[in-house]
Amino acid sequence: MQKYGEPALFFLMAFFWGLNYIMVKYAYSYDVSSSILIMRVLYALAFSSALFFRQIKFPKKLAEHLKVFVLANLNITAFFSLWFFGETGVSASLTSIIIYSYPIMSLAASYFLLNDRFGMGKATGIALGFAGLVIIFFRSVDVSDYLDLIMLILAALSWALGTVFYRKFLTGYDSAGLNTLQLLYAMPVVLVIALITGGINRNLMNPQFNLIMLYMGSLGTAVAYFIFLTLYRKYRVSAISAYFFIVPAISVVLSLIILHEGISRTMLIGFAIMSVGIYMSGRLR
């Protein structure tokens, strides 16, 4: 990435997504997963539409509509649904580990589907980065329902496939416009899932719940996904995937500050190993 601008954008995206993990836990105290799902997408769609109205250009051909629909339901519908429902039975720390196996999955998918080649150095860096995450969170591993674990694995896979699908078919679209379109195309399916799994509850009108969803929909989704699509439009999957290990690292720091959680020596060791992995993945081929 370029020296100043793009790393700063990436850090903003990582910060917004890192804070999402804390916000989800707060949201659970007000309402169920189906409400979080529909309200996050609804707020994100409204915010993105208002912010990027001039960039929205609808596809002219049926095949292009289908491509956007596929992207929407990989990146938004399936990913969010599986994540929110899976996290109800799994700790936030383990959720972070599983979701951020996404870079490993996306690298593997890009190798086979995009012919995106990289050497042993980058592969070793990815492995070290993931190992650092495991060390950070391993004491918190507590899975009471393996169905939840499977849902989180599928969430990571859905996001990885969405990334590769975007790189293969949709990088010609303006990032801001496509970001809005994917939220719009996901909304009908999200609404059906929410109605089937929990319905529209009275707590949707709770002011505190709506403030949480406003953050997650605006900065945590609309703005963060715009940065995500912008970076992946320019760079190969293997070029920036390793940096996504920064997101759960930010979650740990924010948990320390906001939730007053302690940080152990084990976590510090994990951060060190993860940092080495990020450096290797960014510098080596």
Score class of each variant (00 low, 15 high):
L181E: 04
P207Y: 13
A27M: 15
R236M: 03
L254E: 10
R40F: 05
S49T: 15
P188Q: 01
S275H: 06
L74M: 03
I200A: 11
L181M: 14
V237C: 10
L183D: 10
A72N: 03
D148P: 12
F16E: 04
G132H: 07
P103H: 07
L51R: 15
I273A: 03
F58I: 00
T95R: 00
R265L: 15
T266C: 09
L178I: 07
I97L: 04
F15N: 02
D31E: 06
V247P: 05
T124G: 12
M216I: 15
S29E: 06
L128Y: 00
I136N: 09
S241E: 07
L94C: 00
A249F: 03
A224C: 07
Y232L: 10
F169Q: 02
L259C: 00
L74F: 05
I227C: 05
F245K: 07
E87Q: 14
L42W: 13
I227S: 02
V247S: 02
L9T: 09
K61S: 04
A63W: 00
R285T: 10
Y185G: 04
T124S: 14
Y215C: 13
I126C: 07
N201W: 00
I273P: 06
Y173N: 12
L147D: 10
I200D: 03
A44C: 15
Y146C: 05
Y43R: 14
L71T: 06
L42I: 08
K61M: 01
G220Q: 13
S251W: 07
L268I: 14
M267A: 09
